[in-house]
Design a binder for these strands. Structure first.
Lengths: 126, 126
DNA sequence: TTTACATACTGTGCGTGACACAGTATGATG
DNA sequence: CATCATACTGTGTCACGCACAGTATGTAAA
């Protein structure tokens, strides 16, 4: 915690650089979109975490599992259990309703991208 | 509300298509990024709403004003009042701390973009 | 052999921000 | 003189990211 740090607050027993919070917010919406895109092929939770890890994107298990459950409850995803090597795995895939929502989200994402690209005006290669 | 609609729930006196909720989530993080990018030049709230409207991006006043206040409280933004044509206007600009956060957010955004682009595999022109 | 780590889930609760709702005040237009 | 555009303020609700805590199996190291 130096003069160079950004905005600091004490929470849950440690100092939080405020941009950790902003980073969190950046995930909202995006993670849902990401998961829906991935689950066009059937996958289980742990597999998703590892797959994204390989692609240098860290998603917390604490984030992903509740997310999968929520999307499942909303019928955005479908799921089925399989026993593999004595351990149960819950496989998820996007549902027909989910595909419709996914389309909308990709639309939004494209529009957001376009706008930001314009505002940054070529200073970033997006 | 037809068989073609996606996921429906009744709230606040009307039916909500579930993807409105997903759309909402898509704004989290992104709006903060957007505002920080815009406020590299000094602007006031109402002006931001109209400016984005021109660019076909609707941001609710109910969303923007609280957002500006929050970012101001966190010293991400600075503000000053001016009286124009007898009416007070609160002008905001990004602060030095804010610029550091903005850089991080753009990084995150670029990484998210890259990953999603890869996953969508050329099927979308991003 | 027991300790520890990887695998693969479950449940509950907190904090934050998008947006709803409500309100204030001025100037211009009809 | 009513209504609309301008330009803010304050407070409350709800959903989601993530923290925290727990369960259970298989495997590798000490």
């Amino acid at each position: 915690m130096t003069q160079y740090d950004v905005v600091i607050q004490y929470r849950k027993g440690r100092y939080i650089i405020e941009y950790e919070n902003f980073a969190k917010e950046m995930n909202r919406g995006y993670l849902q979109l990401l998961v829906m895109v991935l689950l066009q092929e059937s996958m289980y939770g742990y597999q998703i975490v590892r797959e994204l890890e390989k692609r240098n994107y860290i998603i917390e298990e604490n984030t992903l599992y509740p997310l999968l459950r929520r999307l499942n409850n909303k019928k955005i995803l479908q799921s089925n259990w399989e026993i593999v090597e004595g351990k149960p795995r819950k496989y998820y895939q996007i549902s027909e309703d989910g595909k419709k929502v996914l389309e909308k989200l990709i639309d939004i994402w494209l529009r957001q991208n376009q706008l930001l690209k314009n505002l940054l005006g070529g200073s970033k290669d997006v």
